[in-house]
Each structure stands twice: as structure tokens, then as C-alpha cells.
Design a protein around this nucleic acid. Structure first.
Length: 873
RNA sequence: GCGGGGAUGGCGGAACGGCAGACGCAGCGGCCUUAAAAGCCGCAGGCCGGCAACGGCCGUGAGGGUUCGAGUCCCUCUCCCCGCACCA
């Protein structure tokens, strides 16, 4: 056979190994009870946030996190773990449906096509997923169990129908959950949204607020993400206080406050314009003004209402309330009741006691309307002017400072002077409780989860509306599938398009009487709230997931995805897990032990002099600069999101076609720390390709028979000591770097090894290259498997054990020390690694002799194996 | 405004309080080649001096501090990114 040129050709080796792995089911995870299950192996569950299969296909951002979990999965397998590494599709929901509407194709078809594209794209990248466990949330065999879990929520009193105001988005034709609306606009599509009272299904996530908050502490998540969830849950502790309304209405206004200790300074009440009591208490003289204000507030957008920069607005109702701390004849206790849009109807009780001396907002409001600002503090900070202002109510103080002596009731039953903030709060609450006009209260910002949508492409609720009210579809009749509809567009009314499927809607209840199916569908986040459970037992036809399977696999050991799901998906999944736990269905209370947020992959773009981005099609390279193709204007390079508009979107398929999947994987890991956002630089990609090519060259001669290796690698021989040492260092470094998810430095370490090995190529041994292939395997699995096979490695590399490190080889016999004089490096010495301090100092003195000449050494610092520092005078 | 993260060569980025700039890109020089590409071997923070080997000084957003020693720790400030934003 003639000697052909043997080049590194990913297009030839990658599909071959992908096919081989799949045909031999190499990455199948074994459940307890399966044949070949080995109970001695530790389990490891590595999970990616599964994608929405959008029509645009895979984005380069997807493989970033997926490569990271794949590296960890392959490494854990090599370390002897039973690894669960699954992939599936978040296939229901708005994006799929919007695309279906745009293309006038049924969402079932577009979704199937998109999934096929995503699957093909992912499979080209050589991820070690157990494809036997692939799931789609839009598959009836999957959403059957989504419906089943929803029934358990209903039975536990956690799902209810509500008519409260919800976010309605006209453009999307559906209502949206709080986390899907940002500043009064839809997160998806940026359409305006408004509050409307509509009948909706709601999940009582607020019942779990305290546990969702408390259990965050034990999780291995980034502090910033935990903080986001804490703030979203928004716990605040305080009190509710009743204020009797003076006059004919004889009503009581209940307010929530976190500062009951400042009740002595409450000089007016503020109700939100929507507060139900407003109409009843408003005096005839104020009615016109109040109603006008209410109308104006209702017409304002959410953005206008929450604009912090604007001055406070409000109107007096004409009514007065009694501050419970003051006697009936005490003028200080008679305080006016106002309405203002800075008080939010949905938080607390929708009413506040205003304490201008202790709250910036109340202070600003009092100033605007000339309301009294009674001082309640007696600060003694030494800043005399400010102290006096605070005492007199000319300035507002939110810090903990001493209370004024007049913070006491007439009978002395409550006196705050001398008490700490915490103590004063306690004492005030106790006083209120004793008199039946208040109680301690914890409030959360977290709202119940709006769980229905007026869209076609979602899970139908297993609910019938009968003459007796709501009836659930029996478990045995699940799944309730969607009717096939030619026209599935939203109707522009707050009713789902399912209302037009008349034959589907009209059905019979369990007693055979006419009933209507629920026409709302579940939100996109329904299916994704439990998919990590289904992966544990995806083919179970009797249960959503067997207890044995979830007990074995959960919690997820490593969950990787973007921060965009910080308060939506991650909170909902935690909630459902806790409910299923309380129902005895899963053992764990938290689904995700360790969570890692990858950064965003950005791109370069070019700006002209006006700061406008010039599409890439109009950008021309001119030496080191970029210029406008038409005008020749010099352009400035910036880093932005990839965007179709800028023409700087990188398609993973193109990268694979040009360089191969191993290069794509390696480049994405080499760009920088996984958690950081960083720009894609097309010029850097060939760098990692070259590294793979050099790795190939260590094994395969340039001209040889097909499949041949260098002649010196055809049989075993003793390891070259220097290369062996370098290899052990590399193994040690790569091992530690994978552990801490520092993939960029792991790759750099392998590059260093390959550079050294290339210079001494003919001294390499087969054993050394087999071990190097093992190291490379998690990162560039195809090339590594190919090299392993050519070198005659035993069995499959994907199943081979991780190479051992000999600690002895990690230490040098001799070390080079820096010799510093006054902290500046002046010389270097090489000494035996085990040299004692005196020897080291003697050598260092000699080396730095010219710098020490004529000086007195006052201190000698020796850092073993690093440096010597002489402090001289 | 509040909370979190960040700022290191021309670019992406490395650096348990211990030799700043590993590794890669771009750049420069050499080898190979008729030539080019590829590949291989080198050089490469800035400034100053020297034919050169080399030597000196300055350098991690700005300013202070702690320390024998600071990119790393502390304080003040500037700018950038992310989240929250009248939540009582």
C-alpha cells in the first residue's frame, strides 16, 4: 500500500466515533435494578438546562454550557462514577407557537422539525448524552405526568382559580407571569402589558415562600444568584396595625409596616388609589378630587407609576384616622388619610402609616403637601446641626438612633426611650397585640404563580367545568391531549383559541352530564419544572418517576445554564420538588445541589463615528483596522450580543464544517472562564485547531499507511523521564482544573505538554501518548478516541479509567529561587529542593553580593522554593 | 438609589500575599521551499542606555494605606456589566 498523507481530518473521524458510541450504547446510564448496574459506583448527575428548540437552530451559546457538563461527565466516568447525563426539549410554549404562527404551520410540525435540527446539531458535537432518555415536554407521554403532578398540587390546595388582576399582553394574546413582565413590558417581544382582572389558574407558591428562602442557604449556588432569589421572595418582618377611621364610616384601616417602633411618628395614612376602602371613607368635599386621581393613576403605565425621579403625587380623602398610641382627646393622634400612587395595592395591605421622620418616601410626601413631620428621635452623633434637624423633624433618619423621650403613651404603658431598635419593635407589637389593634406580621414580595395562558401550544389542564363546579379528569384518562386545530392563533380576546374547538370543549363529566373542558393551557415553565425528575426514569408508564430512581439520582450534582432563569425556572422547580416531597413522591427537598451559571458568548461589532453599529457586511478589514466598506471611515471595535441585525452571529454548524466539533468544543472552553461573558474571536479558533493537529502529529506520521503510528510507538518502551515528569504535571493540573471548572487553564496545560512533547517527539512512548489521550478525551473526545485506537489502547477510551499521578514526579530535585533586595528581584539561584535555610541564604547572598555590598542586612525572608528577600539599610 | 461582579500587553486571558503577563491570537525573525501556503525553531509589556551580551527605570483603571513583599488585603474615587428598584 502506498504512503498517503495522513492529515488530521475531523470530518473523517468525528462522525465515525459518534456512530460507534451510539451503536454500542456507550453512554447509557444504569438505574438500580438494570442489568449491569454496579451498586459500588458513586452516582453523578450532570444536567444542562434543556433548550427551547427554536427555528433558528443551535446558537454558539448552547454548546458552551453543554461542553462544560460533558467534560465533567466524561471525567466522572473515567473516575469510576455512574453518570447520568441526559438531554431533552422544552418544546411547549410561546417561542415555538410564535414561530408556528409566523410560518402558518402547525406547532406540532414546527416543533418536531426544530427538535430534529437541534438533535442533529447536538449529536454532531459528540456530547456523551444518554439519548435513550431523551424527552420532550410536548410529548403526550411526558405531559401526561405534568398534568398528573398538577392534580397533586390541586389536591393539596395549591392550585386555585382567581379573578385577581393579572398581566395581560395584547400583542401576545395571553396573560403572563410576574417574572415574564419587566417594567410593564413582556420579556419576550417587549410588548406593552396591562393589569386586568381575569379568571386564571394560580399556584400557591407563596405557601412555600419561607422554605424556598430558608433552603437556599445550603445550596452550592453563586451568592449573586441566591441573592436574586432572596430579593424576589422579598421577605420582610414587621407588624400590621389597625387605625380606626374617625367619622361616620366607622371603618378600620389596616397597614403593614416594618417599623412599628416608629408608630409615634405616624402623622398620616396613605392608601393606594385602588384600595377598597377609599370610596367608603372619602368625604363628599374630596370625592371629585379623589376619583380624578384614581382615574389618572389607572391610566398610567407601570413605568410612569414607578418612576422614581418624579415628585410625589396624592390627594387627601378628607377622612381622619386615630393613631392607637394616643388618647382619644390627644390632637397628635388625629391624622389625615391620603391616597397616593407610591403605595402599591398588591403589597402588604395596600395601605401604609406614613412616618416622615423615619422614611424617605413619607418625608418627601409630607414636604410636598405640607403635612406634619413629628420628630421621634434624639440622636447624639456629635454632628450637632444634623442631630438637631432630625430631632425637630426637619430631616429624615432611617438609621438606628435613640428614641426621643416623648415616644411614650400617656399612661406610660409603652415607652421607647433607651430601647434598641429590635427591642422597641418587640415592645410596640406587644402593646398593640394586648389592645387588639395589631399583630406581628411577615410579608413576602413573592406572588402566587399565575399558571394559565390563553394559548394553544401548552399542556391542557386536566379539568372539567361541570354544573357542580370544577371536576378533575381521572388519572386513568390522562393525558388530556390537544385537539388538532387548523387555526390556533390567539383570538385577541382573553380566551384561549381552544374555545373554538367546540367538539373538544364539550364533553361529559364522570356522571355522564354535559361538561366543558378548561380552555386555558399551562405556561411554558410547567414542563420544565420537573424534567430533571423524568430523566431519572423516562420510560416509566406507571409513575412520573419511580421513588427508587429519584432517590438514587437526585439531587442533580451539577446544573449548568444561564442566569436568565434565576427567578423563574429555578424557583418553580424548587417549588414543585418540595410539593412532590411533601406528597411523599420524592425524597429530596432541593433538586439542584450545585448550580453554575455560564457567561454569555458575545461578538465583535463595529461602530462608526456617530456610535451606530455598522453591519458586518459593510465592514472591511484594512490591515489592523476596520473601515466602512463604502465610505472608508475608520470604525471602532466593540463587544456586543450576537445579533442578526449586526450580522455577527456565529453558526456552530459552520465552525464544525470548517474545523470539526473538537475544535468548537475546545475553543469555547479555551475562550476564558466559563462564568465570564466573552467575545467570540474568529481569529482565535485556528489556534486550538493547531493544538489538536499537533496532538495528532505526536502519534501519526505525516506520510504513512492509513492508520499507522510513528514507528517508535509500535511497541512499548521505557518512558523518557523528562517527558514522564511533564506528563504527570499535566495530569495533575488538568485533574484539578476540571474539578474547579477552570477548563481554559486545563487546556493551556495540555498545550504546554504538547509543545514540549513535539520538541522531543521521538522520545515519547506509547504509554505516555495513551495517557495523554485519556487527558484529552473529555475535551476533544473524537480525536482522543481515534488516537487511543491507533495506539492500540485496550477497549474504548470513553470507558477507560483516568490516568494515575505519581506524586514523586511532581517535585523537582532543584529549584530556582528569586533573590530580592528590598522586594526587587536582583538575582536568581538554583539550589537543591531540600536545601536547608542556611544553604539557601548563603547561595542567595553570593548571588546578590553586588547589591548587598556596603549595606547592612536587617532582615532575611526565605519563602521555601520561591524566593529570598533581603531587607537592607 | 440599593445589591452583586469587574477593570491586567495590540486582542482573549494566566497568576495559594512571593519572579506579573502562563497559554492562545495577532506581530517579528529564521529553517524548509524555485516560490508561497502549511509546518517547524526562535523573539516578543513599555521606556532609556549599549554594536552586542546585557543593564537600569516604569508598569495590573486613579489616589492613599497595611506588609520584608500587593494585580491579590483595607479605605476613597472613576468607569463598565448584571440584577432589583416608591415593596412601607
Amino acid at each position: 500500500m502506498s504512503e498517503a498523507k495522513q492529515t488530521y481530518d475531523p470530518a473523517a473521524i468525528e462522525p465515525k466515533w459518534q456512530q460507534f458510541w451510539r451503536e454500542h450504547d456507550v453512554f447509557r446510564a444504569r438505574n438500580p435494578g438494570d442489568p449491569d448496574f454496579d451498586p459500588r459506583q458513586p452516582k453523578y448527575y450532570a444536567l444542562d438546562m434543556f433548550p427551547y428548540p427554536s427555528a433558528a437552530g443551535l446558537h454558539v451559546g448552547h454548546p458552551e454550557g453543554y461542553t462544560a457538563t460533558d467534560i465533567v461527565s466524561r471525567w466522572k466516568r473515567a473516575k469510576g462514577c455512574n453518570v447520568l447525563h441526559p438531554m431533552g426539549w422544552d418544546a411547549f410554549g410561546l417561542p415555538a407557537e410564535q414561530y408556528a404562527i409566523q410560518t402558518n404551520t402547525h406547532p406540532a410540525e414546527t416543533t418536531a422539525a426544530n427538535i430534529a435540527t437541534f438533535r442533529r446539531q447536538l449529536q454532531r458535537l459528540g456530547f456523551s448524552y444518554d439519548w435513550n432518555r431523551e424527552i420532550s415536554t410536548a410529548d403526550p407521554q411526558y405531559f401526561r405526568w405534568t398534568q398528573w403532578i398538577w392534580k397533586r398540587l390541586y389536591e393539596r390546595g395549591l392550585a386555585y382559580e382567581s379573578n385577581a388582576p393579572v398581566w395581560w399582553c395584547e400583542a401576545l394574546g395571553t396573560v403572563l407571569a410576574n417574572d415574564e413582565v419587566v417594567n410593564g413590558r413582556s420579556e419576550r417581544g417587549d410588548h406593552p402589558c396591562e393589569r386586568r382582572p381575569l379568571r386564571q389558574w394560580v399556584l400557591k407558591i407563596t405557601d412555600y415562600a419561607e422554605r424556598l428562602l430558608a433552603d437556599l442557604d445550603g445550596l452550592d449556588w453563586s451568592e449573586s444568584l441566591k441573592t436574586m432569589q432572596r430579593e424576589w421572595i422579598g421577605k420582610s418582618e414587621g407588624a400590621e396595625v389597625d387605625f380606626a377611621v374617625d367619622g361616620p364610616a366607622a371603618a378600620k384601616v389596616r397597614v403593614f409596616t416594618t417599623r412599628p417602633d416608629t408608630l409615634f411618628g405616624a402623622s398620616f395614612l396613605v392608601l393606594s388609589p385602588e384600595h377598597p376602602l377609599v370610596a367608603a371613607i372619602t368625604t363628599p368635599a374630596q370625592r371629585a378630587a379623589v376619583e380624578a386621581y384614581q382615574k389618572a393613576a389607572a391610566a398610567k403605565s407601570e413605568l410612569e407609576r414607578t418612576d422614581l425621579a418624579k415628585t410625589k403625587t396624592g390627594v387627601a380623602t378628607g377622612a381622619f384616622a386615630r393613631n392607637p398610641l394616643f388618647a382619644a382627646d390627644d390632637a397628635r393622634g388625629r391624622i389625615p388619610i391620603w391616597i397616593a400612587d407610591y403605595v402599591i395595592v398588591t403589597y402588604g395591605t395596600g395601605a401604609i402609616m406614613a412616618v416622615p421622620a423615619g422614611d424617605e418616601r413619607d418625608f418627601a410626601f409630607a414636604r410636598t403637601f405640607g403635612l406634619p413631620i413629628p420628630g421621634i428621635f434624639a440622636p447624639a452623633t456629635g454632628a450637632a446641626e444634623r442631630d438637631a434637624d432630625i430631632a425637630a423633624g426637619r430631616a429624615c433618619c432611617t438609621d438606628e438612633v435613640p428614641y426621643a423621650a416623648h415616644c411614650r403613651t400617656a399612661d406610660g404603658s409603652l415607652a421607647l426611650a433607651g430601647r434598641s431598635l429590635a427591642d422597641a419593635k418587640r415592645a410596640t407589637i406587644a402593646w398593640l397585640v394586648q389592645r387588639g389593634c395589631g399583630e406581628a406580621k411577615v410579608t413576602y414580595k413573592l406572588r402566587d404563580w399565575l399558571f394559565s395562558r390563553q394559548r394553544y401550544w401548552g399542556e391542557p389542564f386536566p379539568v372539567l367545568h361541570t354544573q357542580d363546579g370544577v371536576e378533575l379528569v381521572p388519572d386513568a384518562q390522562l393525558p388530556v391531549t390537544l385537539p388538532r386545530m387548523a387555526d390556533f392563533k390567539p383570538g385577541g380576546t382573553p380566551e384561549s383559541p381552544l374555545i373554538r374547538a367546540k367538539e373538544w370543549v364539550a364533553t361529559k363529566d364522570t356522571k355522564g352530564r354535559p361538561a366543558q373542558r378548561e380552555i386555558n393551557t399551562m405556561p411554558g415553565a410547567a414542563g420544565s419544572s420537573w424534567y430533571f425528575l423524568r430523566f431519572c426514569d423516562p420510560h416509566n408508564e406507571r409513575e412520573f418517576c419511580s421513588r427508587a430512581a429519584s432517590d438514587y439520582w437526585l439531587p442533580v450534582d451539577l446544573y449548568v445554564g444561564g442566569t436568565e432563569h434565576a427567578v423563574g425556572h429555578l424557583l418553580y422547580s424548587r417549588f414543585w420538588t418540595k410539593v412532590l416531597h411533601d406528597d411523599g413522591r420524592v425524597g429530596t427537598v432541593e433538586p439542584f445541589g450545585k448550580l453554575y451559571n455560564q457567561g454569555m458568548i458575545q461578538a465583535f461589532a463595529y461602530e462608526d463615528g456617530r456610535g451606530a453599529v455598522v453591519p458586518m457586511a459593510n465592514v472591511k478589514e484594512d490591515g489592523d483596522d476596520a473601515v466602512h466598506a463604502a465610505t472608508g471611515e475608520k470604525l471602532k471595535r466593540i463587544v456586543t450580543k450576537m445579533s442578526k441585525r449586526y450580522g455577527n452571529v456565529i453558526n456552530p454548524d459552520d465552525v464544525v464544517n470548517e474545523y470539526g466539533a473538537d475544535t468548537l468544543r475546545l475553543y469555547e472552553m479555551y475562550m476564558g472562564p466559563l462564568a465570564d461573558s466573552k467575545p467570540w474571536n474568529p481569529k482565535d479558533v485556528p489556534g486550538v485547531f493547531r493544538f489538536l493537529q499537533r496532538s495528532w502529529r505526536l502519534v501519526v506520521p505525516e506520510f504513512a499507511e492509513k492508520g499507522a503510528v510513528h514507528e517508535w510507538l509500535r511497541q512499548d518502551r521505557p518512558d523518557d523521564p523528562a517527558l514522564e515528569k511533564a506528563l504527570h504535571r499535566t495530569i495533575h493540573k488538568v485533574d484539578g482544573d476540571i474539578e474547579r471548572m477552570a477548563f481554559n487553564t486545563a487546556i493551556a496545560a495540555m498545550m504546554i505538554f504538547v509543545n514540549e512533547a513535539t520538541k522531543a517527539m521521538d522520545r515519547l512512548s506509547r504509554s505516555q501518548l495513551l495517557r495523554f489521550a485519556q487527558l484529552l478525551q473529555p475535551f476533544a473526545p473524537h480525536l482522543a478516541e481515534e488516537l487511543w485506537q491507533r495506539l492500540g489502547g485496550r477497549g474504548l477510551l470513553a470507558r477507560a479509567a483516568w490516568p494515575q499521578v505519581d506524586a514523586v514526579l511532581l517535585v523537582d530535585d532543584e529549584v530556582e529561587l528569586a533573590v530580592q533586595v528590598l522586594g526587587k528581584v536582583r538575582a536568581r539561584v538554583t539550589v537543591p529542593a531540600d536545601a536547608d535555610q542556611a544553604t539557601v541564604l548563603a547561595a542567595a547572598r553570593q548571588a546578590a553580593a553586588s547589591w548587598l555590598d556596603g549595606k547592612t542586612v536587617v532582615k532575611e525572608i526565605v519563602v521555601p522554593k520561591k524566593l529570598v528577600n533581603f531587607v537592607v539599610k
